[in-house]
């Protein structure tokens, strides 16, 4: 027993302090062509790993991380006259967005940055709840149906994703706008209106329609994987269809629900186009505010600080979510 311990301790010592027999054997093994071949293969494997996986990682480091680090440093500088940048470290930008009202192009927005950030989270939450409420039944249907048109039906859920986002939001202007479909149809039954655009409901409606496939598909995936026998045996043992659903199907589809919810929430919070096309000035979201500050007010440092606060909130949400469901699983759905 004690002898084996000694040998182990010897193994851990650097080669030069090991007994001679070890050194001789190591040398013999290294000279052996098979062992050397294995080592060459291993070195080659390592090199290929670095080259292959490293290519995508290097791309992201160069075109995503480096730019983000760059605006992190930008956020601690300040805007000089005419959109120039004064390279003097300051936390003034963070003070401005976290403590004061926002003044853009002389137009005082009643809300501070934080209120707009809060509004984005609120829209994100409403969109998530609405997509879940509207998306569960179709996801369930697609998962359980035995129709031979199932792949065609699935295709119609995926296809809107291929339509440019700008067209999908613009389409709602034709539905909700002044001469839009709803105004016309309501006009036939004698209800006059000026359209239903430029408010909270229009923004969330657009977001819900655009993001629904992200909820339906993961739910479909999990429901589709549920073994029929689980549900049948629940029913055989006397559960009503509704009870069988609550006790078997619903819990087993939870991974799909959580994957869909986190994706919809994150994508909704970062939306630019829904408020830009369907909302009024009061329905701005954080992406719109960053865009205006950067592109119209030319205050790059302030816009960078706004982006940083948004990213901190985003990563906080992702981290919290990661504790319950791995992000990897979301993308495997």
């Amino acid at each position: 027993m004690s002898e084996r311990h000694e040998t182990r301790a010897e193994d851990l010592r650097p080669a030069s302090s090991q007994p001679l027999r070890f050194r001789v054997w190591t040398a013999v093994l290294r000279a052996d062509p098979v062992v050397r071949g294995i080592q060459v293969v291993k070195r080659r494997e390592r090199l290929l790993t670095v080259l292959q996986a490293g290519l995508g990682l290097a791309w992201m480091a160069l075109f995503l991380l480096a730019p983000l680090v760059y605006i992190l440093s930008l956020s601690f500088w300040q805007r000089g006259a005419g959109g120039t940048i004064v390279y003097e470290a300051t936390v003034a930008n963070y003070q401005e967005i976290l403590l004061q009202n926002v003044d853009l192009l002389g137009w005082q927005i009643g809300n501070t940055y934080l209120l707009i950030l809060w509004q984005s989270l609120k829209f994100g939450f409403l969109t998530t709840v609405a997509t879940l409420a509207l998306g569960y039944v179709p996801g369930y249907f697609l998962g359980r149906t035995e129709s031979r048109y199932r792949s065609l039906l699935l295709l119609f859920v995926v296809l809107p994703f291929w339509v440019p986002l700008i067209i999908r939001y613009y389409a709602w202007i034709l539905v909700l706008g002044n001469d839009g479909l709803i105004t016309t149809v309501l006009g036939w039954v004698g209800v006059a209106s000026n359209g239903y655009l430029y408010n909270d409901v229009a923004v969330v409606t657009g977001l819900v329609q655009v993001l629904l496939p992200f909820m339906i598909l993961p739910i479909y995936n999990t429901v589709n994987k549920i073994d029929d026998e689980y549900i049948e045996s629940a029913k055989t043992m006397g559960a009503s269809p509704l009870r069988a659903f609550y006790e078997v199907t619903l819990p087993l589809s939870l991974p799909g629900i959580s994957a869909g919810s986190i994706l919809v929430f994150i994508l909704a919070v970062g939306s630019f186009m829904a408020p830009a096309l369907l909302g009024g000035p009061a329905n701005m979201m954080v992406a719109n505010l960053i865009s205006q500050t950067f592109g119209q007010a030319f205050d790059w440092p302030l816009a960078s600080a706004m982006a940083m606060v948004y990213l901190v909130v985003l990563f906080a949400i992702i981290t919290v979510f990661n504790r319950f469901v791995g992000l990897e699983e979301v993308f495997d759905q």
């Binding site: 983000l68 760059y70 994150i266 970062g270 992406a287 960053i290 982006a307």
Partner: peptide, 10 residues
């Protein structure tokens, strides 16, 4: 996951 506005600006 990151808003395209932030990627665009950065």
């Amino acid at each position: 996951l990151i808003s395209p506005v932030v990627i665009g600006v950065a």
